[in-house]
Design a protein around this nucleic acid. Structure first.
Lengths: 212, 212
DNA sequence: CGTTAACCGGACGCCCCCGTCCGCCTCGTT
DNA sequence: AACGAGGCGGACGGGGGCGTCCGGTTAACG
């Protein structure tokens, strides 16, 4: 109980006390995972990622015991991109233009790999990095939405859950090639922006949650 | 070549020269398939459907050699419902109101079971019944859209592919319970209607297909 | 340059799903 | 009542993904 451990219990963060080959493999695994998530969706077998990275399955599982760990690490920078997009939108002097660009850019980002959308929708509570990034992004967008409502451009009955709704819907868009999917998502985002825009005749929106 | 066959080559339609127990089993298989497609999505294993119907796997496979056959037969009435919805919309004296109702009702229908959406999006060329129903539905909606554009209520840059886009997006909507999914889809459909409505400031829409 | 501990990947066993074959059973008819 | 064609479901072999163990290998350090 009182023994001093030869290695301090590795904190959750990426341990940089990794042997050089191990670190290289780790990076290659992450690269392969990112590439495959984009090209073949988030359901690629772990095996496939390992093969593509040129390592054995054991190495992959040792470094990332569960697929969620791998996804979390692989998607960390995308999540940061989401945060940046939201903050750039908030920085726009015109709240509505900022909001609009946020919708367009986030849809485009999420059209690239759907794993990010899953992280956003489910917001899995493990993977703290992702959850934190998600929360901060949503907070920023909420503030942006408030300002856009105040300026009278965003419809007042918009709620933040509608953004999740749009991202889920965006995830459903399929196309034979990544380029086609991007184009379809772009058009979809344009429609969404139109739908969110305030309009003199505001037919009331159905409630977010169904009747209890 | 000139022999008269004891049984005429069974036409693609459901053969009614089926022994009574076989017919009963066939119906129970279809009921089980419909129920499971709704409650657990279109990816339920064939085994599960057979178990739920109280028959063995062989019986299921004998009656429906491929899963696509089963899906086609199970979804035939939903597809008919789509057709009816479209025609009722076309019958509405106000084209825009008809169009709007078609969007709402078709989204609701497709929110119930996603298998129908797959049939609509992919429009698989086997399963002739489904393909025919899909084609007729789309033709009717195209005509309705033309009228709604003429009346100035539907934005002129709407194309029929946008309906497919919306259905794909609708398919992406997830929720813990069927009721919640229905509610979310309802709200989504309302947004879509708003997006499709003609507006004085028509910011140009991104093209349907991306740059070549 | 030698030692050692960490790392590597091939191989294993498990489970689930798929599609098919075969011996028994049952409906429909004579 | 008895027959036979058609139907039935249990059982089989194949394939693929998953998560883990172990003997060989290699980086790191004295």
């Amino acid at each position: 109980m009182t023994d001093r451990l030869p290695h301090p219990p590795r904190s959750g963060a990426a341990d940089d006390t990794l042997r050089s080959d191990a670190a290289g493999n780790r990076d290659r695994i992450l690269d392969a995972a990112r590439a495959l998530f984009v090209s073949r969706g988030p359901d690629v077998p772990m095996r496939e990622i390992a093969r593509h990275a040129g390592v054995g399955p054991a190495t992959l599982y040792r470094r990332f015991p569960t697929k969620r760990d791998l996804v979390a690490e692989a998607l960390a920078d995308r999540m940061r991109a989401c945060r940046d997009i939201a903050e750039e939108g908030l920085a726009d002097p015109d709240p509505w233009r900022g909001f609009r660009r946020v919708i367009e850019r986030i849809c485009a980002l999420h059209a690239r790999d759907r794993g990010l959308t899953e992280a956003f929708v489910a917001g899995f509570p493990d993977a703290l990095d992702l959850a934190a990034g998600r929360a901060e992004t949503l907070r920023t967008i909420a503030e942006l939405a408030r300002r856009a409502k105040d300026s009278g451009d965003l419809r007042p009955d918009f709620v933040l859950a509608d953004l999740i709704l749009v991202l889920m819907a965006n995830k459903g868009i399929q196309a034979p090639t990544p380029a086609a999917r991007a184009a379809a998502s772009r058009r979809f985002a344009a429609y969404v922006v139109q739908a969110f825009r305030a309009s003199p005749d505001h037919t009331p929106l159905p409630p977010v949650a169904g009747p209890l």
